[in-house]
């Protein structure tokens, strides 16, 4: 982690503290809680995609595993929410090893295909294994998680809790990137042959980072289950996995901050679009939430065309040129090329 990242952390923490006061409405605080869940899953996915260069189209399945493990173990077995969350994370990790070991030993994007199939299987099990998962009716009465004996009943309490989890998750991820392990992962992305010639055990590292990203997704799913207190298969379909990949790609694969920005932006987008519905109505266009998917597609297309490195890299480049222009203005020569 570099000095700039610590500045990033300060900005993030500052925004987390300020945002509830700006939105001042429980509904929007709730939206920001959901954004936190997506952020957490996207941080893990970014480690896998952006740093190790492997694609998973099935991270929604790991979110489902975390959510269902938490939901079922707390309601049916009476486990504490924390133990159930740990069990879910452990299960997700174990399943990631089972899916990852045969696919990640191969070169190429076998992982993408395997995880896509895996996501469908998990969704089908959630719908059809009625005795275990409750089927389409889902799991009811999941308790709220508590913290050191405090319950986190209000939205605002859960908001701070969920975003603390994001900050911790981001901190751990940054530390991994800035270590011999992280450099090994980035090396695999650069050239797998050269990474192994430098002594990096490439297949083991790819499997480990896949398992780690599954743990991030699973924890995100558990936190989701404890927040909404009710889960059904609906949110865990394959489209959700694709949406997570879109979030990371829009924000910028190559950097963890990109994952945070992408997850935040696309999580808040439906709300922004519903704001836009009223003015559109005034000029005679009726905007329906169904159209959201078109807007997502358009955004992804535009980003891929004009900012292929993602929003974060685009913002960083924009800030840099703005800063250079500012320095020139201070010197009084804004239009002189140096």
């Amino acid at each position: 982690m570099h000095a700039k990242d610590y500045i990033g952390f300060s900005i993030l923490i500052g925004m987390v503290l300020v945002m509830p006061h700006l939105v001042g409405n429980d509904y929007y605080v709730g939206v920001l809680v959901f954004a936190a869940f997506n952020c957490l899953a996207c941080i893990g996915l970014c480690l896998l995609m952006g740093y190790a260069g492997q694609i998973s189209l099935g991270h929604g399945a790991f979110i489902a595993i975390g959510a269902y493990a938490s939901g079922l173990l707390t309601t049916k077995m009476g486990w504490s929410p924390w133990t159930a969350m740990a069990a879910g994370a452990f299960l997700a990790m174990a399943i990631a090893f089972i899916v990852g070991i045969p696919t990640l030993r191969l070169k190429g994007h076998y992982l993408a295909m395997a995880t896509l199939g895996f996501a469908s299987i998990v969704h089908i099990v959630a719908v059809a294994a009625v005795d275990l998962t409750g089927g389409p009716a889902g799991v009811l009465g999941i308790p709220r998680i508590g913290l050191f004996g405090f319950s986190l009943d209000s939205d605002i309490q859960y908001y701070y809790f969920a975003w603390t989890a994001v900050v911790i998750g981001l901190y751990l991820a940054f530390n991994i990137i800035d270590s011999r392990i992280g450099r090994g992962l980035r090396a695999i992305h650069g050239s797998e042959d050269a990474a192994s010639a430098a002594g990096v055990n490439t297949s083991v590292y790819k499997i480990q980072v896949f398992a780690l990203s599954a743990v991030y997704a699973s924890v995100s799913g558990s936190l989701y289950a404890y927040y909404v207190n009710y889960i059904d298969p609906g949110p865990f379909d394959v489209m959700h996995s694709i949406l997570l990949v879109t979030m990371v790609a829009v924000g910028g694969l190559r950097h963890l901050w990109g994952a945070v920005i992408g997850a935040l932006l696309l999580s808040l987008l439906p709300e922004m679009l519903s704001f836009a519905a009223a003015p559109l109505q005034a000029i005679g266009i009726e905007y329906k939430p169904d159209y959201d998917i078109i807007v997502y597609g358009t955004i992804l297309l535009l980003i891929m065309l004009f900012l292929p490195e993602g929003l974060f890299a685009g913002l960083a480049a924009g800030c840099k040129s703005a800063w250079n222009l500012f320095k020139k203005i201070l010197k009084g020569r804004p239009f002189v090329r140096e």
Binding site: R183, G184, R186, A187, G190, S191, D193, A195, A197, A198
Partner: peptide
């Protein structure tokens, strides 16, 4: 075969 997105020093650190 270098790691083009990493700095020169990071390449050697690998």
């Amino acid at each position: 075969q270098i790691f083009p997105d990493m700095t020169v020093l990071e390449n050697v650190m690998v």
